[in-house]
């Protein structure tokens, strides 16, 4: 086994499940029960009849553990398909954040300027606050939130990552 395989990498695990009660609990319980970590989690129905949902879980693990996660998730009864996407697999991963900044004067103007540069939209504004909506890769959201911190960052709500493979490949 190469050392590269032993070092942990970040991955998005996309899981197509039957939209039935308990399906999410089964997946999450598997992660906590087997000691895999969950950095972010999204879930929503994705087909026209709302019979199937897609769960995206961001985790960090070695290749070998990622393969275990895939196999463990795949054998759950309500799971249709699983894909594990790391940096080596061409895919798009995005999340959305709502960021509340409470500021006035100079700091308020700075916040607006940075938001423009990041293409973050103010979706709510009051005399003393903004709520910015920002979509992008996780590190872009992290960078924006870091920049807002000295400018009056008050609250953050993030969706977690949704991911999909590039090209014609499907789950």
């Amino acid at each position: 086994m190469t050392t590269q395989q032993e070092s942990p990498v970040s991955a998005v695990i996309s899981i197509q499940v039957e939209n039935e009660s308990g399906a999410l609990a089964r997946v999450i319980g598997l992660f906590s029960g087997r000691g895999y970590n969950i950095e972010s989690l999204t879930v929503a129905a994705v087909d026209e009849t709302r019979r199937q949902s897609r769960i995206n879980i961001v985790t960090t693990a070695t290749q070998r553990v990622l393969e275990q996660i895939r196999a463990q998730v795949e054998r759950l009864v309500p799971v249709y398909r699983v894909s594990v996407m790391t940096a080596a697999d061409p895919h798009v991963a995005r999340e959305m954040a709502l960021v509340k900044v409470i500021a006035s004067g100079e700091r308020r103007a700075d916040a607006l300027r940075i938001a423009q540069a990041f293409r973050a939209h103010p979706v709510d504004a009051s005399a003393t606050s903004f709520v910015f909506e920002l979509t992008g890769a996780t590190d872009k959201l992290d960078a924006f939130i870091d920049l807002m911190r000295p400018l009056g960052l008050a609250e953050v709500s993030r969706t977690g990552v949704a991911a999909i493979a590039r090209g014609a490949a499907i789950l």
Binding site: M1, R64, E67, Q68, A71, Q72, E74, R75
Partner: peptide, 10 residues
């Protein structure tokens, strides 16, 4: 059970 293969011993 595919999850048993490579679980403990490669």
């Amino acid at each position: 059970d595919p999850s048993q293969i490579n679980k403990i011993v490669p």
